[in-house]
Design a protein around this nucleic acid. Structure first.
Length: 300
DNA sequence: AGCCAGGCTGACG
DNA sequence: CGTCAGCATGGC
């Protein structure tokens, strides 16, 4: 990986094991949208609107100042050796089936407050609808950015969400999560330092996050993995539950505790590995056919 | 038309 | 400690 800034463009070359389209649509981040050229992605990273375009092993990010290069390189996790991680997956007989579909996945490093709120919204929800709620939240109180002939919105500051009412949040479709979002925003606006969780142990950081209303083990793990550098945080949702059952337990029923133990054995990058498993599970629509089979026949 | 979704809360054992 | 009904909403 090497990079240069030419004009206002950050050009990063030698980017291997990276598929921008997969990373933007896999459900780790909810705000990347397809540009009208049909291949570039528009997004807002810590308040900065950017256009990201991948051409083979080259990633271009526009615009970018000298000062922002490190921020963007970190956001896309470009310094990490994913060849090493994919090698680890390929050499594990239980996980190798995931790689053809999931190769090129990377775990982005998002802003902690954005990750926390968007994953509170994610609870018992689907990715498309989560994206819709997040979009309406940003339109409601995020800073407007005119860029590339389009109107984008930054993710709202904690204080901006804290100014809303529960009814406002219900209005944008947040449903029963509305009070959770509001309570969490108020606490962060009030000075809670999410960055301080970066240096805590995984278990301490999880425990701290689970004190927020609407945050259980899964949302805590997502926040830690997707924004706070805890690469061993291993979120277990319904997709991962099905995948682990099939890949690790020969389709026998397995409890959360057993899954956690199996995940720990995957090592310090287990959370990143989880993202490959998640992508695979969704790609092959894991479990859907089996569930359809046991469904009783419809009456005439 | 139902079932499902990147689950969590609060109540109750 | 573990279990579990109930939960808003809309995609498919």
């Amino acid at each position: 990986m090497e990079y240069e800034i030419s004009g206002n463009m950050l050009v990063i070359g030698g980017v291997k094991n990276f598929d921008l389209a997969k990373c933007c649509s896999c459900g780790q981040a909810f705000r990347w949208k397809l540009y009208r050229d049909g291949e570039s992605r528009l997004g807002v990273i810590r308040g900065r609107p950017v256009l990201a375009k991948q051409i083979g092993e080259t990633l271009k990010i526009y615009p970018c100042s000298e000062a922002d290069a490190a921020l963007f390189i970190n956001y896309f996790d470009l310094k990490r050796d994913y060849a090493e991680i994919e090698k680890l997956i390929l050499s594990d007989d239980r996980l190798s089936v995931c790689l053809p579909a999931a190769s090129g996945i990377r775990v982005f490093n998002q802003e902690p407050f954005e990750a926390l709120i968007t994953f509170i919204i994610s609870a018992n929800n689907n990715i498309k609808r989560i994206a819709g709620i997040v979009d309406r939240l940003c339109r409601r109180c995020g800073e407007e950015k005119k860029f590339m002939g389009e109107t984008l919105y930054a993710f709202p500051k904690p204080s901006k969400i804290a100014e809303l009412s529960v009814d406002d949040l219900v209005e944008i479709g947040a449903g029963y999560r509305a009070p959770y979002i509001l309570d969490t925003a108020k606490r962060v606006a009030d000075g809670y330092d999410l960055e301080s969780l970066r240096t805590l142990s995984l278990s301490e950081a999880r425990k701290a996050l689970m004190n927020f209303l609407g945050v259980g083990p899964k949302v805590a793990d997502c926040t830690l993995l997707f924004s706070l550098g805890h690469t061993d945080a291993f979120p277990i949702d319904v997709w991962i539950g099905r995948a682990m059952k099939e890949l690790f337990f020969e389709s026998n029923p397995a409890g959360r505790a057993e899954m956690r133990k199996a995940a720990e054995d995957l090592g310090k990058f287990s959370g990143i590995v989880q993202q490959y498993i998640f992508y695979y599970a969704r790609e092959v629509n894991l479990g859907k056919t089996e569930r359809a089979k046991i469904k009783p026949l419809k009456k005439p």
